[in-house]
Nucleic acid binder design. Sequence first.
DNA 1: GCATGAAATTTTAAGCTTGAAATAAATGAC
DNA 2: GTCATTTATTTCAAGCTTAAAATTTCATGC
Lengths: 156, 156
Amino acid sequence: MVSAPLSAISKDSKERLRLWIRMLRASRTIEAELRERLRQGFDTTLPRFDVMAALYRAPEGMLMSGLSSFLLVSNGNVTGIVDRLVSEGLVTRARRNGDRRTSMVKLTDAGRAQFEAMAAAHEGWIGELLGGVSEDDTKRLASMLKSFRSNWEGRE
Amino acid sequence: MVSAPLSAISKDSKERLRLWIRMLRASRTIEAELRERLRQGFDTTLPRFDVMAALYRAPEGMLMSGLSSFLLVSNGNVTGIVDRLVSEGLVTRARRNGDRRTSMVKLTDAGRAQFEAMAAAHEGWIGELLGGVSEDDTKRLASMLKSFRSNWEGRE
DNA sequence: GCATGAAATTTTAAGCTTGAAATAAATGAC
DNA sequence: GTCATTTATTTCAAGCTTAAAATTTCATGC
């Protein structure tokens, strides 16, 4: 009765490790394909797409810190990506009256139009790339991952 | 009977999109935590860990091209990471008799020892980070992702 | 042998990413 | 009001990553 719990723990962690490796490989495979298609089809990158997707959901704009926490990347990272999007005319940094440290980052009309085209293609690509996952499995996987996320976030 | 299939397809793709976003966020959250722990605990990075993990499974060594295809990253990428691991004394590039274009990349004894320590910690971390996923769900998720991988790879 | 093309790797330029330091502005104590 | 602290962001150095070009070596045909 002493070694039984220990070996059970070890067995569990091996299975979770296998799950993690498969999830990581699946993500990387899909990401690589999306990156290539965004490059070929729209001459842009995945990080730029991610920033534009976040901004599209927030018509009133987002702060830099809001972007970085939503996208799960560092502050400095977003600065560079937004800089490039600004120089391409796809987003703007609007000074705020109240707080001169911050600015509201928004999509321009051009940025909004370009994102809508990319988003439609993107949704189709995901449907294609995940086409091998049945509708039932899709729902089950999504709900498992949802609970994982909230479990994990609660502990941070 | 004309719009029905179309709307079904659209609904599917929305659900698959949701699944993808959750999978991506879960991966990024776990990766960020692993990166931080590898840095704090072993003063190393995730890409170095990945290369060492691949080499650990291949005692006879691997070619650069083998490493990059196994890790799903570009050739040039592996060059830089292996360069740094060599300069740290953790891996070697062994010239081959047959083909002077290639070299066998292997873990040194120091590299092997360090990897074993990291791998033990890593397995524990994954067990902890995925602790909220039940054993049943772990198996189910892993098998879904396995079939996804092989489906997808078959199409490439 | 020698040219030609293929294969393995490295190099390069650009961009992404992080963690830490620096900057700038707001807030709060007094 | 002034100073210290906190908050939001940018800057910086180092490393990661890619795609494309360049390099080196091998294999093949002649």
